[in-house]
Design a protein around this nucleic acid. Structure first.
Length: 339
DNA sequence: TTACTAACCTATTCAACGT
DNA sequence: ACGTTGAATAGGTTAGTAA
């Protein structure tokens, strides 16, 4: 926004690069670090870009395979033997390297590409490994400055806790995948397992990316408020779940270093700003949100975990009625909801 | 303007390795 | 066997680029 570092400049692979990558992918969809390095040299792009490309294509291939299996599976002789990568290699960082990384982490938990590359140069560690290191570090060392609330409490930064799905305004805007807004808590990967609640964390509550927290759509609409509002924080209670809706989520995005974080994090929104955001809603908006919250809560209180109903990873099969219900309460002013 | 997709994120799991 | 932690995966969003 202000010329600060954002993310790695997006490149567009040329045909030759794509062909080469595809050829390598066919030979081995899981190249190790050394192989990726070689490829990177050959193609003139970075190893982490190679890594990203392969990650994406593994996903795509899985999806394709799944669809293929779904269509003509049963009879055919199951999946072909895949190229199995030899044991996962593990990078060993020296204390010197770790010290540098930890220092950098203290300064900024979300280093942009420039910082990561600087660190790579300082430490001699490939940038992609540094990226992974920061991911792991963030996951395992929650920011102490974010307070000591548990994840079941009010959302905290840099990540805004929500239910495990995006807010309806987003959800509905893309392909009417209504599942998210109606998903019961912690069910993205299957039935709710209450035994785990309260241990490490509420499993499968998703966390918005820093950039997802407050970023409006730039169209003057109060989507950010919607985002916060429509994401009830669901806490397990003795008799089920309690939502904390309606929620005017106190968004306190905290950039580590505004001058050079990845640029995905957004500046903190102080309380006056929040209040303003809320006040800016007109009565129609407010009535709608109240209506939504009531409906949402009623849906949640009616919901009963049913193992048969949540068999696997993803889909929640909703009845037509629920879909229509959801659609019918779309905010008239929010065009994205109309879709 | 829209579709595509690289770059990025969290959450979770796998697995190497030191104890 | 277990804890730590690097690597991988799943599932998502953001934003730059080409059509």
């Amino acid at each position: 926004l202000l010329g600060k570092e954002v993310r790695r400049r997006r490149i567009v692979l040329n045909q030759n690069q794509k062909d080469t990558l595809r050829a390598w992918f066919e030979k081995n969809p899981n190249p190790d670090l050394a192989t990726r390095g070689l490829l990177a040299k050959e193609l003139g792009i970075s190893e982490s870009q190679i890594m990203t490309w392969f990650q994406k294509h593994r996903k795509i291939q899985k999806q394709v395979e799944f669809e293929y299996c779904f269509e003509e599976s049963q009879a055919q002789g199951q999946d072909k033997p895949k190229v199995k990568e030899a044991g996962r290699s593990r990078t060993h960082f020296t204390k010197f390297q770790i010290d540098i990384l930890i220092e950098a982490f203290k300064k900024n938990r979300f280093p942009g590409i420039v910082t990561r590359e600087n660190l790579a140069q300082q430490t001699g560690i490939p940038e992609s490994r540094i990226h992974i290191w920061f991911q792991n570090r963030r996951a395992r060392h929650p920011d102490p400055k974010q307070g000591t609330q548990t994840t079941a409490q009010l959302p905290q930064c840099p990540a805004l806790k929500t239910t495990d799905q995006p807010a309806p305004s987003k959800t509905l805007s893309s392909s009417l995948s209504v599942t998210p807004a109606l998903s019961p808590p912690n069910t993205q990967s299957g039935p709710l397992d209450l035994s785990r609640v309260g241990q490490k964390q509420l499993s499968r509550t998703s966390v918005l990316q820093p950039s997802q927290v407050v970023q409006g759509r730039g169209d003057g609409q109060s989507s950010s408020v919607f985002n916060g509002h429509l994401s009830p924080v669901i806490t397990p209670g003795e008799e089920g779940f309690h939502t904390q809706a309606p929620l005017w989520l106190p968004i306190q995005e905290k950039c580590q270093d505004p001058s050079e974080n990845s640029g995905l994090a957004v500046p903190p929104l102080d309380h006056s700003t929040q209040a303003l955001a809320v006040n800016q809603l007109d009565q129609k908006d407010f009535a709608f949100l109240q209506h939504w919250d009531e409906w949402f809560q009623s849906m949640l209180t009616e919901w009963v975990p049913d193992k048969e109903y949540w068999p696997g990873k993803s889909e929640l099969h909703l009845g037509q009625v629920q879909l229509q219900q959801l659609a019918s309460v779309s905010h008239p002013a929010d065009k994205t909801l109309q879709q």
